[in-house]
Design a protein around this nucleic acid. Structure first.
Length: 516
RNA sequence: GGUCCAUUCGUCUAGUGGUUAGGACGUCAGGUUUUCAUCCUGUUAACAGGGGUUCGAUUCCCCUAUGGACUACCA
C-alpha cells in the first residue's frame, strides 16, 4: 500500500463509526493481560463514541471450559467495562458466539476455494507430526508451504479425480490457505508502524478444521468484517499472524480494519510473559476474580482491590497520558486515552505499585463508606459494631492501610484485649517503675467522667506535668498493656473508643501478667 | 533454529538533534509522632554496546547483544 493509499485509508476509517471488539476464548479465567486488552479497547471505543463488542471465540471445542464465559463477563462488569453488543446484550451483528456462527464460516471458506486461494488437505495429524519430527532431527523446521505442498496429500498436489474421490468417500480434510511463495507483504500497525514480511517464511495455515469448525484466523477475519469492526486492538502475540490476516482480507476483497497490537504484560522479576505461576509464587493475583473451578486461582476482587484502582493500575501499565497525573477514574481515562500514547515495549507487572493505587483510592473513600465495608468484614468474624463507632475507628486507622482487610490488622486490639504481650517491647519499654506508674494512672483514669479522647488526654497530660513524669515512659507502658505491643493510633483515641471499663480491665490484666 | 517485535533509573514511564535527562513506585536518610504506620522533606539510580550521519547524538541510520512473541486441525 502506498503512503497515500494508507493516509486515505486512515481518513476513511476516521469518518466511519468506531467499532471494536474484545474476543476472548472461554478456555479458563481471564488473565489480567486480557483485561488490559479489553480495557484499552473499551477506552478507545468510548473516547471515539464507538461501540465495544464482546465476541466469544469458542471454535476450539476441546478447550472449552465451563464457567469461563460467565467469568469473562463478570470480570468486565466488575471493572466497569460496559459491553454494548455481545452474547448477553444482543445487537444487530449477532450471534456473538462463534460456535453459533459455524454455517457462516463455511460459506466464506467456499468463496476462497472457488477463488483458488484455499485448498483441501488430507494429511492426517499423525503424518504431519512425523514430518515435523523428522525435520527437527535434521535440524530444520517443517513448514507446510509452497515448497512442500506439492509433495503432500492435498487438492493442489493430487489429480483432480483423486482428491474429489477422497471428498466423496468422506475422508477427513482441512482447508488450507495457499500462501504465495515469495512475496513481500507490507502492512501497517498503529502502534508499530510499517512492517514487511516475506511469504516464504509463512505457512499454509489451516483455516477450516476437520471437525467442521473454522480456526481463529478464518473466523476472526470473517467476523470482524461482518461485524464491521473498525479497529482491531489485541495482544502482541497476534502480530506474527497479521500478514496472514492481511492476505485473507485481500483474498476476500475486503478493506481491512486498522490494527493495533498491544505489548504484553511481563513477569515482575526475571523474564517472560506474566503467568498464573508467577502470581502463585510471588503472592499476587494474575486474575481479576477468584476462579473456583479445578485448579483455583486468586482474584484481585477477593484480595480486596477496588475495581477503580485495579483498572487505573492496568491502564497506566503500557499507556500514559503525557502528564504527571496518575489517578484516573474510568471517565477520566476515557477522556485522556489516545492510542498513540500506548508504549511499544512489554511492561513488567509491579505488585507494589498495584497496592499503592489501592491505597490512593482507599484514602479517597469517606469514613462512612469504609465503615460500611469494614462492617461486612467484621460480620464475617462475628463482630457486630455500631456503624458510628466504626466510622470513628476507620478514621483513626485509614491512612495507614491499603486494603479494608488491613484495617483489622491495624485495629484488632480495639475489639479484643491482648492475649499476649510483645516480649521485645517489654524488654525495651517496661521499666522498674512502670507498674507503679500504671497503677497511679489507673486510679486517675477511674475518676475521669469525660472519657473522650480530649477529656482523658487533658487530665493525663496535666497529671504527668504536675508530677514531672516522662510522657514516653508512661505512654509506652500504657500502650503495652492496652494494645499488647508498640503500634496503633494515638493512645487516647484508643481508650476513648474501647471505654473506661475495658481500659481499666486491660491495665489490670497487663499488670498481673507482665508483673511487678 | 527461523520470522517478527522491542530496548531510558531496580520497576512503570516522560522527553529532546544542544536538557542539571523529568515524574511515580520502590530503596535509603532525616523530620513529625507517646509506639507502629501514615505523612513531609531529601536521597538514590537510567539513555544496552559498537559503528556511522552531524559542529553536536539518548534522540536519525546500520550492526551486535539482550529480551519477548510466534513457529498446532489453540486461540
Amino acid at each position: 500500500m502506498s503512503i497515500f493509499a494508507h493516509i486515505f485509508n486512515l481518513f476513511i476509517h476516521s469518518m466511519a463509526q468506531v467499532r471494536v471488539r474484545f474476543a476472548p476464548s472461554p478456555t479458563g479465567p481471564l488473565h489480567i493481560g486480557g483485561v488490559k486488552t479489553a480495557l484499552y479497547n473499551y477506552l478507545f471505543a468510548k473516547k471515539n463514541n464507538g461501540n465495544f463488542i464482546l465476541r466469544i471465540e469458542d471454535t476450539d471445542q476441546a478447550r472449552f471450559v465451563e464457567g469461563a464465559e460467565e467469568y469473562i463477563m463478570e470480570s468486565l462488569k466488575w471493572c466497569g467495562i460496559i459491553v454494548d453488543e455481545g452474547i448477553n446484550e444482543g445487537g444487530n451483528y449477532g450471534p456473538y458466539r462463534q460456535s453459533e456462527r459455524r454455517a457462516i464460516y463455511r460459506q466464506y471458506a467456499d468463496i476462497l476455494i472457488d477463488k483458488g486461494d484455499v485448498y483441501y488437505a488430507f494429511d492426517t495429524p499423525e503424518q504431519l507430526e512425523n514430518l515435523r519430527r523428522e525435520s527437527e532431527k535434521a535440524g530444520n523446521t517443517f513448514i507446510y508451504n509452497a515448497t512442500v505442498r506439492e509433495k503432500l496429500s492435498n487438492s493442489v498436489s493430487l489429480q483432480e479425480n483423486l482428491w474429489k474421490e477422497k471428498l466423496e468417500k468422506g475422508e477427513p480434510y482441512v482447508l488450507r490457505y495457499k500462501m504465495p511463495h515469495n512475496e513481500d507483504i507490507h502492512f501497517e500497525d498503529i502502534i508499530r508502524g510499517h512492517i514487511v514480511v516475506n511469504t516464504r517464511t509463512l505457512d499454509d495455515k489451516v483455516l477450516f478444521k476437520s471437525d467442521g469448525m473454522p480456526t481463529y484466523h478464518l473466523a476472526n477475519i470473517v467476523d470482524d468484517h461482518l461485524m464491521e469492526i473498525s479497529h482491531v486492538i489485541r495482544g502482541e502475540e497476534w502480530l506474527p499472524s497479521l500478514p496472514l490476516h492481511f492476505m485473507l482480507y485481500h483474498s476476500f476483497g475486503w478493506d481491512p480494519p486498522l490494527f493495533a497490537h498491544l505489548p504484553l504484560l511481563l513477569k515482575p522479576d526475571g523474564k517472560g510473559k506474566l503467568s498464573k505461576r508467577d502470581g502463585d509464587k510471588m503472592g499476587f493475583p494474575v486474575f481479576p476474580l477468584f476462579w473456583p473451578y479445578g485448579e483455583t486461582a486468586k482474584g484481585y476482587r477477593e484480595e480486596g482491590y477496588y475495581p477503580e484502582a485495579f483498572v487505573n493500575m492496568l491502564a497506566l501499565l503500557g499507556w500514559n497520558p503525557g502528564t504527571e497525573q496518575e489517578i484516573f477514574s474510568m471517565k477520566k481515562l476515557i477522556e485522556a486515552f489516545t492510542i498513540d500514547r500506548v508504549g511499544k515495549s512489554g511492561s513488567r507487572f509491579d505488585p507494589e505499585k498495584a497496592k499503592w493505587f489501592n491505597h490512593q483510592y482507599l484514602q479517597n473513600r469517606t469514613n462512612t463508606q469504609l465503615a460500611l465495608e469494614f462492617r461486612e468484614f467484621l460480620r464475617a468474624r462475628g463482630y457486630h459494631v455500631d456503624i458510628v463507632d466504626l466510622e470513628t475507628l476507620v478514621g483513626l486507622v485509614k491512612e495507614r492501610v491499603s486494603f479494608v482487610k488491613d484495617i483489622w490488622e491495624q485495629a484488632d486490639f480495639f475489639f479484643r484485649a491482648p492475649e499476649t504481650y510483645d516480649q521485645e517491647v517489654i524488654k525495651k519499654r517496661w521499666k522498674e517503675d512502670s507498674a507503679a506508674l500504671l497503677l497511679e494512672l489507673r486510679s486517675l483514669l477511674e475518676k475521669i467522667n469525660d472519657f473522650s479522647a480530649a477529656g482523658t488526654e487533658t487530665v493525663v497530660k496535666a497529671w504527668i506535668e504536675e508530677k514531672g513524669y516522662n510522657t514516653g515512659a508512661i505512654m509506652n507502658a500504657f500502650r503495652l498493656v492496652v494494645v499488647g505491643t508498640s503500634r496503633g493510633p494515638h493512645m487516647f483515641d484508643i481508650i476513648s473508643w474501647i471505654g473506661k471499663e475495658e481500659t481499666l480491665k486491660r491495665i489490670d490484666k497487663g499488670l498481673s501478667i507482665i508483673g511487678k
